[in-house]
Amino acid sequence: KKYKVVEVKENKDGTVELVVENENGEKKKITLSKEELDKLKAGDTVELK
């Protein structure tokens, strides 16, 4: 499934919390490390299994 990044929030521990949404409007929260996030920004599309 493809999800669009709608919100990006940095946590104090250096991880980043993303809120992503698919075309049905379903939202998910995922947490990434700073390194994983470096290639993402709001409006990008991510694929989740």
Rank of each mutant, 00 (worst) to 15 (best):
E23H: 06
K27Q: 12
K34Y: 12
E35D: 13
K28M: 14
I30W: 14
N24K: 10
L48I: 15
E7P: 00
V20Y: 10
V20K: 00
L18I: 10
V46H: 04
V16L: 07
V19N: 02
G25D: 01
G14V: 00
V5W: 04
E26R: 05
V19A: 03
E35G: 14
T15D: 04
V8A: 06
K27L: 13
K49Y: 02
V19F: 06
L18F: 04
K27H: 12
V46G: 09
K9G: 05
V16T: 05
K29I: 13
N22F: 06
K27F: 13
V46N: 06
K27W: 14
L32I: 11
V8E: 04
N11L: 10
V19C: 10
D44F: 02
D38T: 13
K41I: 08
N24V: 10
E17L: 11
V8R: 04
S33Q: 12
K41G: 06
D44K: 05
K4E: 01
L37I: 13
I30V: 10
V8Y: 11
L40D: 01
T31M: 10
K49S: 15
L48P: 07
E36G: 15
A42C: 12
L48G: 07
E7L: 09
G25Y: 04
K29T: 14
G43T: 04
K39C: 12
E21Q: 07
Y3E: 00
L18V: 11
L18A: 07
V20L: 08
V16S: 04
E36N: 14
N24G: 08
L32R: 06
E26M: 09
G43Y: 03
K9Y: 12
E10N: 09
A42N: 10
E10A: 07
L40C: 09
K1H: 07
E36D: 11
E17T: 11
V20I: 10
N24T: 09
K1P: 01
T31K: 08
T15M: 08
L32P: 01
D44P: 02
E21W: 05
L37G: 15
V6R: 03
Y3C: 02
K1T: 10
E35W: 15
V8D: 00
T45N: 06
E21S: 06
K27N: 03
K41S: 07
K34R: 14
L32S: 03
L48M: 06
G25R: 04
T15C: 09
T31D: 01
L48F: 05
T45A: 02
T31S: 07
E35Q: 12
T31V: 09
L32T: 06
E47D: 13
G25C: 07
K41W: 08
K2E: 03
G43H: 03
T15W: 11
N24R: 10
K39T: 12
K49N: 15
K1E: 05
E17D: 10
E26G: 06
K12D: 09
D13S: 02
K28A: 08
D44G: 09
K34M: 13
E17Q: 09
V19Y: 06
E17S: 09
V19I: 09
K12M: 09
G43A: 04
I30M: 12
E35T: 13
D44Y: 02
Y3H: 01
G25H: 06
L48W: 03
E23G: 05
S33L: 13
K4W: 05
E21G: 01
V46A: 02
K41C: 07
E35K: 12
Y3T: 00
D38Y: 13
L48A: 09
L32D: 00
K34D: 04
G43S: 05
K39S: 11
N22K: 03
N22A: 13
V20P: 00
K4D: 01
K4V: 06
K29S: 14
V5T: 01
L18M: 08
V16R: 07
L40T: 10
K9E: 03
L32A: 06
N24Q: 11
K39V: 07
T45G: 02
D38S: 13
V20A: 03
V16W: 15
E47F: 07
V46Q: 03
L48S: 05
E17H: 08
D44Q: 05
T45W: 15
K4M: 05
Y3K: 00
D44R: 03
E23D: 08
